[in-house]
Simulated assay, not measured.
Amino acid sequence: MTHLGVVFRPQLPPERLRTLARLADDTGLEELWLWEDCFLEGGISAASAALAWTERVRIGVGLLPVPLRNVAVTAMETATLHRLFPGRVMVGVGHGVQDWMGQVGARAESPLTLLREHLDALRALLSGERLTVDGRYVKLDGVALDWPPQEPVAVFAGATGPRTLRLSGEAADGTILTASTSADGVRRARRLIDEGRDTAGRSGSHQVVVYLLTATGPDAAPRLRAELAAEGVESVPDLGAAGDAGAIAKAVQRLADAGADSVVLQPTADEPDPEGFLRFAAQEVRPLVP
């Protein structure tokens, strides 16, 4: 089954989250995803509030920029969420936007090395291991969580380029793809992820989450075109979806057929009715997606 979600974009003020999280819960939406874009809203604080306000919807954080955090802090916060809300938390980590990382003095000389070290340590800590690590970026001396998750948990990695996609296959349990990923892009990502998994001898499932830029309503097409142009990807074929529930469901199905396990509808930054968009996703699009 393809999971369907919606992004709560941090262009909305934090005080809007409560209403939208509860609406996601009430309408039966499977996933609500949050972003930690600089310098808008904190991913862990927003996720903990959304989880506390709801009963069943899964909350994803996609993603936490690893240059901003010591891996022990990432592990502590992730483990706390999983113990408080078992089965309802999805946390992803990634490079972060390099310009933003530079603004706060955290830009890494080798983002790929940092992400690999962070992923390896994070997964080990969440598994209850005691670690001593002397890496290029990650340094731990006999560190273990007193309260690791009670069940195995998946760690997601955000990835776009080939090397990071292969790394995600090697060192993460799932991959988050941006809304700049077409169906063909999902297929390429799956191939690269599988190459990484083969290299590392990984088995089992590897969930792929992809955002789908989505607009509905009478001005859907021009709003979609404007956002794609603003992101510099207007020339990429088959990106985004605009129209009624049938049109959006077909776009979701194309991504699912290409290898996506979860498709997360990403409203445009100027979406005039976020609550209406969420209801549209849960009540009109969801029934059309197998």
Rank of each mutant, 00 (worst) to 15 (best):
L265M: 01
Q283T: 15
L68N: 05
G62L: 11
T74M: 05
E36C: 00
L115K: 03
F39S: 10
Y137F: 15
A79W: 13
S168G: 15
F277L: 07
S182H: 09
G105R: 06
L119S: 02
R88N: 00
D25F: 04
L125H: 06
A49F: 12
M1K: 00
V209M: 11
A106Y: 00
V264I: 15
G142F: 10
T132Q: 01
G259F: 09
L40M: 14
E109N: 14
T113W: 11
R16M: 10
R254S: 09
T160P: 03
A171W: 08
P274S: 10
A50M: 12
A281D: 08
E284G: 06
D141A: 13
V93N: 03
L167V: 12
L112P: 13
D194T: 07
R83F: 12
D194M: 03
R56C: 10
V263K: 03
W33A: 11
V6T: 11
T54R: 02
G5V: 02
F277A: 11
P65H: 02
G102T: 07
L265W: 05
E117Y: 12
L4M: 01
L64W: 08
I176P: 00
L212E: 05
D25E: 08
E234F: 04
P10L: 01
L140G: 00
E117H: 11
A106P: 10
A124I: 04
L112Q: 14
G217W: 08
V93D: 00
E151Y: 00
V6P: 03
R56D: 12
V7W: 14
R83E: 14
D120P: 01
G28V: 04
V143M: 13
P267G: 04
S262A: 13
V138T: 14
A49S: 00
P272A: 06
E15G: 05
I176G: 05
L29S: 03
A242P: 14
D270Q: 01
L115V: 15
R58P: 05
A106E: 05
F277S: 07
E271W: 09
L40N: 08
V263G: 05
A154Q: 15
A242D: 14
A179M: 11
Q253H: 13
T175N: 04
E231I: 03
R197M: 06
G135V: 05
L20H: 07
R83N: 15
E234N: 10
A251M: 06
A241M: 07
G232S: 12
G92F: 02
G62I: 02
W100E: 15
L212V: 05
L125K: 08
L34N: 10
T78W: 15
I176C: 09
A269G: 11
A282T: 13
W33F: 12
T74Y: 04
V61H: 06
L4N: 03
H95D: 07
Q253V: 09
L228K: 09
G185A: 07
V91W: 00
G62T: 02
L81K: 02
T80R: 08
